[in-house]
Design a protein around this nucleic acid. Structure first.
Lengths: 148, 148
DNA sequence: TGACTCATGTCAGCATACTGACATACCTTG
DNA sequence: CAAGGTATGTCAGTATGCTGACATGAGTCA
């Protein structure tokens, strides 16, 4: 599998890096009985309590239907809680339960270790560069009409 | 959705960028009746004719079982061809048919446009930086034992 | 040579995410 | 106030990818 042109494609490299990270995270989360979206949901709720189903979906890059299925499971398992009735509109603010917080704590360290491993051999300046360039990619894709 | 800590996480930004690219590619490929893996498979075969099922799977970051299902569909639709019997071992070298080459040609331009859009506002030096940093991420995740 | 290991192709079952659709609540705008 | 538009939560069905398992062929090594 000698690379011909793929190594020069930013898109392919982006997919490769994302896939590598995805695999590594899966590997550490599986023994804990968690999926990546499962973990991402708890992490997001930890940093922003009261997020709604749709907001969690956008924050974890899945549809609100998928997040709904996940939230029902998390609620059933007592990891998150949602009020019976919406305080306003149809939005149901979700919060972590103590059990959810505990599960997140065990996973958080493992995930952080993976990210640290990924950044091995990268200077602080390099990391900031990488963040900047990735943000640029996202911004450029968000407004495709502006480029014409 | 004001960002608190997520914007500083390279892992989260990587997932966000990858998700954005994935969505943009999906948007341009759907009208052509192609999925991303479908396109990636044809593109890979174009650049490296004769790749086996397992090699294609690794090159597109899916399992060989998933690639097998896709290849059967592509073969049924006359986009790729595989010999009846393996020339050596069990490996079946796959090649593009003229029809497959034509379909790839129409998709290739659209995908290239998406990647170009993503790199809008990024200097050549920036792009090379990004490639270098992404390759660093992949390499660091490939050998997690070395970091301990 | 024979046993062991490994990679491959493939079948089957399962999990996860997506699209389509609907009712509901808010928020404009005439 | 009525009407249209938008966002949300949720149910269903579908699709795509994954894990588990098995047989086959090639290379390795005692």
């Amino acid at each position: 599998m000698s690379q011909v042109e793929l190594d020069t494609s930013v898109g392919y490299l982006l997919k490769m890096a994302s896939s590598s990270l995805h695999g590594a995270m899966e590997a550490v989360l599986r023994p804990l009985g968690m999926t990546i979206t499962h973990y991402s949901c708890l992490e997001l709720l930890s940093q922003r309590p009261g997020l709604s189903n749709s907001e969690l979906a956008r924050g974890t890059f899945v549809t609100r239907q998928s997040m709904n299925v996940l939230l029902q499971a998390l609620e059933r398992d007592g990891l998150v809680a949602r009020p019976e009735r919406a305080p306003s509109g149809r939005v149901l603010p979700t919060t972590l339960t103590p059990k959810g917080r505990r599960q997140l704590a065990t996973a958080s360290g493992a995930v952080r270790a993976v990210e640290d491993a990924m950044l091995t051999g990268m200077s602080a300046a390099d990391q900031e560069q990488l963040r900047r360039l990735l943000r640029s990619c996202v911004a450029a894709l968000k407004a495709p009409a502006d480029t014409l």
